[in-house]
Design a protein around this nucleic acid. Sequence first.
RNA 1: GAGGCCAUAGCUCAGCUGGUAGAGCACCGGAUUGUGAUUUCGGCUGUCGCGGGUUCGAUCCCCGUUGGUCUCCCCA
Length: 445
Amino acid sequence: MSTHAFQAPKGTRDFYPSDLAVRRHIEHAWRSASIDCGFDEVEGPAFEHLELYTAKSGEGIVNELFSFRRAGGENDYALRPEFTPTLARMVAARAGALPVPVKWFAIPNMFRAERPQRGRLREFVQWNIDTLGVEGAATDIDVIACAILALERLGLTPLDVQVRLSHRVAIGRLLSALGVSEEKSADAMTLLDRRDKLKPDEFATRAQALGLSAEGVASFDLAARATQPLADEISALATKIGIPVEALAALDEVRAAATRAGILEWCTVDIGIVRGLAYYTGTVFEIHEISGAERAVAGGGRYDGLVELFGGPKMAACGFGMGDVVLANVLRDRKLLPDDGAALLPRPDAFVISAGSEAAEAELPRLMMALRRAGFHARSSSKVTRNVGKLLGDAGKARARFAVILGAELTEGQIALKNLDSGSHSGSQTLVALAELTEHLRVKA
RNA sequence: GAGGCCAUAGCUCAGCUGGUAGAGCACCGGAUUGUGAUUUCGGCUGUCGCGGGUUCGAUCCCCGUUGGUCUCCCCA
């Protein structure tokens, strides 16, 4: 390819100012929700030893990674495809010294060697929330509630997105109650996970392969598609599937915790939510746009064995990841992002205009620096025209709060301060002493 | 990894059965030597994604390639 036509690598994004403004808007909701929920921010390397990932996910993961070896080097590395191994490594390294619970969040970029499609890119940003060292449904709900808080701050409601949740222990007992043997349990969960992708007859065939009777297959099919608002009694779900209520006791604990936290309306029980088999040990959940039009906004759950897997002590853990790509799609679907991301850029406090006199020309650069030293976001025009109308046009396009006009009054030490937010009329303009400008901006900001 | 569609100005797009390109917006300047959304006049812009082939001649047809988009696969 010739040198004048470089393109960004497949599945990566260039963030022009208006694009980055959107990303920061999302990240701000994530970060503020994390902090308000008591999580501390952490960060790790953008690449790790390849073995860190194969240790958790097996050799098969390598195809999904961007891995590399330094020219002449002997170590294999991989760009991080997820944050959890890094987190587990960090916790394991200092497990003895960390106060429990460990409540950490991170907003790292991730890399996956996948073919890009809607909601999936090769580089993206993912918000990670994790609580370690504490067992119990209340912790699971604490984590989920933090996700909800961030989504709420972005303008979403329970009518836009739902937390679809299930519980590994409950599913295990459910399967057992339906007559699925211990050995077939993993197969059964895989089948639950694939319920929407398989044709009915193929689903039935595979259900029979679990060793179920015709009646058992019917119940299994019912269970696989079972969803109900978390607000409804868990016993209703058990009755519907035809199993003892006690089998779903774990879900009832989650429901009780969600009730106490006041997030019931955001949650739906969904027996079809399974997620990584070798990984999760308790509550599992995904957050979905309610119509199912987009991929999962977030996914996570309880994974009590993970820190141990990375050489640490046995440690309870619960967390989730939320990517920026699907979330931005959902926000756009719901008209919760401006058409032009520039509307999310920081607004100038003052836009300084010289009307053209020698005194004004001399004053402008001095005033700019003075305003900035005082902590104001100050801009001026680079246009050569001194047509005040045109320059006010620039001020408006810059979305400045105030225009500061250096005109004839400057000889008396005064400038015109125009409030650009108060409509298109000139009535909102006052003469103020140049020396008192910062005071006026401070009061009116 | 498999397949469909797409790529023309900074942006959104037009461009006839092949004859080397236009519009709107944006941008810059003036009208108007002091007042901003829908005043007005003028101006700038392209190796038509890239490479090759067919042809007298390719933005247009063919092949390859890069990127985008969507589906399948996968999904920590």
